[in-house]
C-alpha cells in the first residue's frame, strides 16, 4: 500500500496542497486532472525525484518521504518514454538489472520474460529512435517492470500515441495489470481513459484533490463543478434550489425551473447527462417531471450519435442516436421538446 499524508509540493507558480491518497496493493489508481495541474510533479514526488515541502509518503508501512529514489523500488514511465537514446532496446530494459549486479542468466531470464510479456522480442537490437510510439511505450514499460517495482507510475502513457495504438496500448495496460497486479498510479487528463482503466480515480485540480472514488462515483456524483466538467457531464447549470411546497423542489436557472430531488438548498450546481434527456418533436406523455420546449441551435455530428444543443434558455446538450435523429427529421431551428426525470438531475 502506498499512501501520501497531507503532502504539499511547491511547483513555483502554485502548490500541490494536502494531497491525501491511499492506493492499495494491486490497485490500478488513476489521477485525473487537466494539463498543468501538477500531475507529473505528483508522480515525481512519489518517486523521490521532486522535493517534498511538507507531509509524508508511506510505502508498505514504512515512511519513505526522504528516501533516495534508487532505494524506493518505484519505477516511472514518462509520457515521451524517456528511453536512453544511446542504448539498444535490450540495454534499456536490463539497465536496472545490471545496476543490481544480477547474474547473467538471471538477467537473460528476466529479459526473455518481459519481452515475451510485451511482445517486443523482435526489437531487442534496435535503437530507441527507430521505434514507433507504441513500441517505445512497451519498451519503457518493460524497463520499468524489470526491477519488479512495488509501485509503477505511469505519466500520461497514452497521450503521445496515435488513436489506434492508444486503444491497443490501453488494452495492453489492462492485460498486464491483470496479470502482474503491480500497484499502479496512472495520471491522465482523459476522462474516458480514467473510466476504462481505473479501480479508483482521484481528480486533481487547482492544486488539490477534488474527489476520490470509483469511476462510477465520479461519473454519476461529481462533488463540484470542477469534477463535473471533467466528467464530461455537459449540462452543468448554476442556480438556486427552491422549495415550492407539497414536497416539490425546483432548481431555478435562468428562466427554467427544473424539478429535482435533493435535500440541499441554496445556490448550487445541477447537472444532467446528455444521454438522460429524451428529445421529441411533440410533448411526451410520460412520468418524467421535466419537459420543456426549446429550439435546436446546434447539431454536432459524431457519426452514430449526435449532440444537439437545445435552447430554452438555458442551453441543454442532448444525445440522440443517428437512427432516431433521422426518424424525427430534426434540423437546426426546429422546435422540440426535451424530457428528463427529476432523478436524472444531480444537484451539488
Amino acid at each position: 500500500m502506498i499512501e501520501t499524508k497531507n503532502l504539499c509540493v511547491n511547483l513555483g507558480s502554485f502548490q500541490l496542497q494536502d494531497i491525501n491518497l491511499t492506493v492499495d496493493d494491486g490497485e490500478y489508481f488513476i489521477v485525473l486532472g487537466p494539463t498543468g495541474a501538477g500531475k507529473t510533479v505528483l508522480l515525481e514526488t512519489i518517486a523521490g525525484l521532486y522535493p517534498v515541502k511538507s507531509g509524508e509518503i508511506w510505502l508498505s508501512g514504512k515512511e519513505i518521504t526522504r528516501l533516495e529514489p534508487e532505494k524506493r523500488g518505484i519505477s516511472i514511465v514518462y509520457q515521451d518514454q524517456a528511453l536512453f537514446p544511446h542504448l539498444s532496446v535490450k540495454d534499456n530494459i536490463v539497465f536496472g538489472l545490471r545496476l543490481r549486479k544480477q547474474a547473467r542468466q538471471e538477467i537473460a531470464a528476466s529479459l526473455d520474460w518481459l519481452t515475451e510479456l510485451l511482445g517486443i522480442s523482435h526489437l531487442l537490437e534496435r535503437k530507441p529512435n527507430t521505434l514507433s510510439g507504441g513500441e517505445r511505450q512497451k519498451v519503457a514499460l518493460a524497463r520499468a517492470l524489470s526491477i519488479k517495482p512495488q509501485v509503477l507510475l505511469l505519466d500520461e502513457p497514452l497521450s503521445a500515441l496515435d488513436p489506434e495504438s492508444r486503444e491497443a496500448m490501453q488494452r495492453e495496460l489492462r492485460r498486464i495489470h491483470n496479470r502482474l497486479k503491480v500497484t499502479t498510479i496512472h495520471v491522465t487528463h482523459d476522462f474516458e481513459e480514467a473510466i476504462a482503466l481505473g479501480d479508483h480515480i482521484a481528480v486533481l485540480g487547482e492544486g488539490r484533490i477534488k474527489q476520490v472514488g470509483t469511476p462510477k462515483d465520479i461519473f454519476n456524483q461529481p462533488n463540484s463543478e470542477f469534477v463535473a466538467r471533467f466528467a464530461m457531464t455537459r449540462n452543468i447549470f448554476t442556480g438556486e434550489v427552491i422549495d415550492k411546497g407539497n414536497g416539490n423542489t425546483v432548481f431555478r436557472t435562468e428562466d427554467a425551473e427544473l424539478v429535482v430531488v435533493t435535500d440541499l438548498r441554496g445556490r448550487l450546481h445541477a447537472s444532467v447527462r446528455p444521454e438522460d434527456i429524451l428529445i421529441s418533436p411533440k410533448p411526451l406523455h410520460s412520468s418524467a417531471r421535466n419537459s420543456f420546449c426549446g429550439t435546436i441551435t446546434y447539431i454536432a455530428d459524431r457519426g452514430s450519435t449526435l449532440y444537439l444543443t437545445v435552447n430554452l434558455p438555458p442551453d441543454f446538450v442532448c444525445l440522440v442516436t443517428r437512427r432516431s435523429f433521422e426518424e424525427m427529421k430534426l434540423a437546426e431551428g426546429n422546435k422540440v421538446y426535451i424530457t428528463f426525470k427529476a432523478s436524472a438531475i444531480h444537484v451539488f
Binding site: P69, E70, S75, I76, A82, F95, G96, L99, R100, R143
Partner: peptide, 18 residues
C-alpha cells in the same frame, strides 16, 4: 541531455554517480 533520463535511471536503482 533530458533531465528525465537521469530521473528514470535513478528510479531504476542508479545512484547519482552511476
Amino acid at each position: 541531455v533530458d533531465v528525465r533520463l537521469e530521473k528514470v535511471s535513478r528510479t531504476l536503482g542508479a545512484s547519482p554517480w552511476q
